[in-house]
Design a protein around this nucleic acid. Structure first.
Lengths: 278, 278
DNA sequence: CCATCTTTGTGCACGCGTTCACAAAGACAT
DNA sequence: ATGTCTTTGTGAACGCGTGCACAAAGATGG
């Protein structure tokens, strides 16, 4: 998922919790699959299983939309598909621009999930003149110079940023200035935007790092009794192997920023320098 | 962000909250940038601004790791980089396989963010024989038949699924059976995995739909009260009775999406009709 | 028309995450 | 040393999200 959103503190637009909104697309997908199999109705239990959530949660989520179910029967699939689509704003057409047609941008342009849900790729934009005019996913790439014109001409309000990190903020500023109010950011940067603009972030690297954390923990649990090491928590919480030569973590001394000296090089771990490269 | 995780109810590894873990990579990135500029120390206020979070939240997050700051001064950048890296398990090398080398898989293989943080692409795997041997991002694609061997030979514990939706669950099962315990899923499907396996999901379509919701709400606020579509709701309320028999009280628009082009042959998400296992 | 059975909709309690606000800790100047 | 100033670390309150458990609503059968 995209991690977090920016601004808009209590996004409770007269009813629907943010967490619920984030699950509606999930329900919609499951319902669409049922619809294609011509299943007429579905119970909260079945649908919850298909969407991978708790059935009580699903019912509560739907209760924010209204009372669209029939007790003793369940939910009418087609009707619910429409209601959720309407709530999400998918009954209208959303022109979208993708800025930065590198590997990722091209992949996004080719991603079928966009076109099938009310999103239309209005334009592909790249700063590289060599890319201009080149067709990607059947659409000719346009140069960044045209950005403002493209936005206004097509009435684009949603932009996707797939540029390198260095260009992201600048592109973002231009998009916002031209009228875009929702941004999906794939660049590994924190974008700053004015109030009223929504930003969602998708960060591949972060997802992997979160997995690595759990992976490391799983590996550690096998070897050490995980219970009640509370006291040691502050002291050393690393893997058994690496624990040995770690510099005393508590020591508030270390006044001189030892930089890459004692902590940069981690002996027993060996494999990789602790200092992270760019 | 990737939306949610699967299983592992109270993922509190005896100390660090899940929400904090999800932010650590963010801090790490900001710190790395500071480190490259040779900034020796940083205050919680500065670092929080760079990471786009509240400073109190940042301090509390760090407090779960230990007392690594110096009051009146701030945090030592290099030292903190090391501590967070260690906590996330980035001081070791994580071999990763990417399954499904389409547009997205290729983009992921080329993504620099992987290699730079302790993650190493151990292999690219695709089911298409025509892809076998073809170099992508400097690595020769291997056939799915080799999957199990690749996993065990390289000691891979993290797998990335970038296949069409229809193949995702099968690939997932094979990965898990071969020993993978963490999965990053880009396919628009709910994966079911045994206990002890972590799944994180990145779903581009869902992110856009969430943006569309907020966009619609923003547009509605400007005009008139968008809620209270009482007429539509009341009219709809009594229809479900007939819905069971007749083709349902679908609303006027988009009974069949038919928006622009395709949709005739492909499933809702373009990849493959998402057939849900009941 | 009544009884029974299924499934929704929701009141309630609990736990996690966020934020505020402040005391404690250290740096620095005198 | 002592005082002042800066910044951390955290106790406590609050709000959101989740899940349980059950009453209400409707279908179904006799």
């Amino acid at each position: 998922m995209a991690t977090g959103r920016t601004h808009r503190p209590a996004t409770r637009s007269r009813g629907i919790p943010e967490a619920t909104v984030a699950r509606l697309p999930l329900y919609l997908r499951a319902l669409t699959a049922l619809s294609e199999r011509s299943v007429p109705t579905v119970s909260s239990e079945e649908l919850a299983a298909a969407a991978g959530v708790n059935s009580a949660k699903l019912r509560k989520d739907f209760s924010y939309l209204g009372s669209y179910g029939t007790r003793g029967v369940g939910y009418d699939v087609e009707y619910l598909v429409y209601q959720i689509s309407r709530e999400l704003g998918l009954t209208q057409d959303w022109p979208v621009v993708i800025v930065g047609i590198g590997n990722l941008g091209a992949a996004l342009a080719n991603y079928g999930g966009f076109a099938s849900r009310g999103f239309r790729v209005a334009a592909l934009i790249d700063a590289d003149p060599a890319m201009t005019g080149k067709p990607v996913a059947g659409i000719a790439v346009q140069h960044t110079d045209e950005l403002e014109k493209i936005i206004t001409d097509n009435g684009v309000s949603i932009g996707v940023i797939a540029t390198p990190a260095g260009a992201a903020q600048q592109v973002c500023d231009r998009l916002v200035a031209a009228g875009v109010t929702s941004i999906l950011n794939f660049a590994p940067t924190v974008l700053s935007v004015p109030d009223g603009v929504d930003v969602r972030k998708v960060d591949l690297s972060i997802e992997l790092q979160i997995l690595a954390f759990h992976e490391q923990r799983k590996a550690g649990e096998e070897t050490v009794a995980p219970d009640e090491v509370a006291s040691a928590q502050a002291a050393a919480q690393d893997t058994p192997g690496a624990a040995a030569a770690a510099p005393a973590p508590l020591a508030p001394h270390r006044a001189a920023p030892a930089a890459g000296t004692d902590n940069g090089r981690q002996g027993p771990d060996g494999d990789v320098p602790a200092v992270m490269p760019a």
